[in-house]
Write a protein that binds this DNA or RNA. Structure first.
Lengths: 243, 243
DNA sequence: CGTAACTGTATACTGCACACGCAGTTAGGT
DNA sequence: ACCTAACTGCGTGTGCAGTATACAGTTACG
């Protein structure tokens, strides 16, 4: 029924990202651009967090009125999608080195972690479905690339990429939320102290034991992260060995 | 400096959950209760999604005015925390069966997945830091329990629990977001069709291959989930074998 | 050179969380 | 018996979101 030239309707924002926006010819020169709006929004989110990202705030950042943004962006959701993809900028030029698939996957995951550390608001974003924006997909492609030569099925590679990035995202989210919970670096009692207050030994024998026995090694978020990642990679190794 | 009787300030909502709210004696009988408010809120979120959960909506559900809720709950964030913990109700009576740690962990993860399926809004919640509410912690305790006898260090058990639940949560989140993207079950083109439209072979050789070769096996979300879980469990098995 | 397409903006509307204060209700102290 | 402190429920009001709409000015095509 649809004429062959009728473009399939894309999810919000994707038409911009994939360069399918007509770009009219008449009328005054645009004083703004999607890119400048997105980068202003990213700057605001980096500085003040996602919760204080409003259309008015972004407009102030670029020196225009709030409503002018809507000439370039359909709504706030679309802007968020664009910000997400903007954070994956540079994936095109990315080259992942390493002798083994394990090294390369580790590096790939580390890059993702770095991005999440630079843009903490990414962990609070309402991530709609799998990534379908060009930079994100390029990054996925780079991830698949790391497993060339392992003999894994392509579908399994994709699942592994999904697994690792969901893990990386979750860990970053937890680290972020925890950091935000202690406002002024005041070494607020944080997790274990609370647990010691709240846990009683009979209801929570194992957690109780962990809470009271821990002060030996003050381990870092990064070590926690690597521990989990190595468990996943061990699982991948087992899968590769299976065949 | 703090007097011994001075209660340590708990994060919002936790004082209610752990039964540390004074509960005054004078004044009129409360017409509401925290429990009724929370369960009304859960009902609203189950039915209409988290985005349409407002204090006014909850108030209408229980037949009171908006502001009356604030006599029981400090703010909306606190209500969300209470809802989160309420979703883990029943963890106390939970008994996880299975002959091997692997079976038990699988079951444990499956229970979490079921809860997330029943309360999809959990995947959209701003999860502040690790769970410190009683039901959530009880569920963690049950998770630790599944690995009794594996000889793993307690700290590692806790990390594994964290790893599995972050994975389970992420998978549920993606499944949810994808489901919400196609509004009326209209078999919207969804992921692969879009990929076929957007990917060109030279920029995305591997994704291109996956997108065009796939229709062989229409696999389900559940299989995807189990695949990733088994990778993680393989990793745990490797860790257990290491010692 | 008229007009259609386009841009920036002011104004207005809606829904939200929540501060505040008031009126009525109960239980203890005198 | 009664005063009063502690409490509940509610109406009003505030400020901030996102965004619909209409309008005036600007540019390029026919």
């Amino acid at each position: 029924m649809t004429a062959p030239d009728t473009p399939v309707p894309l999810p919000p924002g994707l038409d911009i990202l994939w360069g399918r926006r007509p770009a009219g010819r008449r009328g005054p020169r645009p004083g703004l651009s999607v890119e400048s709006i997105v980068s202003a929004a990213v700057a605001v989110a980096d500085r003040d967090g996602l919760e204080s990202l409003s259309m008015a705030r972004v407009a102030a950042e670029v020196g225009f009125t709030t409503m002018s943004l809507y000439r370039y962006v359909a709504n706030k959701d679309e802007l968020l999608q664009l910000m997400w993809d903007a954070s994956a900028e540079g994936a095109e030029e990315l080259v992942i080195e390493g002798d083994t698939w394990r090294d390369r996957l580790r590096t790939w995951s580390g890059i993702q972690r770095d991005v999440l550390a630079q843009h903490p608001w990414l962990t609070q974003m309402p991530m709609a479905a799998p990534p379908m924006a060009p930079n994100s997909l390029t990054f996925v492609e780079r991830g698949l690339e790391t497993m060339d030569g392992t003999g894994l099925a392509d579908v399994d590679k994709l699942r592994i990429i999904g697994l690792i990035s969901s893990y990386t995202l979750s860990e970053a989210r937890m680290a972020n939320d925890a950091a935000r919970a202690r406002p002024e670096g005041v070494e607020s009692p944080s997790f274990e102290s609370f647990l010691r207050l709240l846990l009683d030994e009979e209801r929570f024998p194992r957690l109780y034991g962990i809470a009271w026995s821990e002060p030996s090694s003050p381990r870092s978020d990064h070590e926690d992260f690597l521990f989990g990642l190595d468990r996943i990679l061990d699982g991948v190794a087992a899968l590769i060995g299976d065949r």
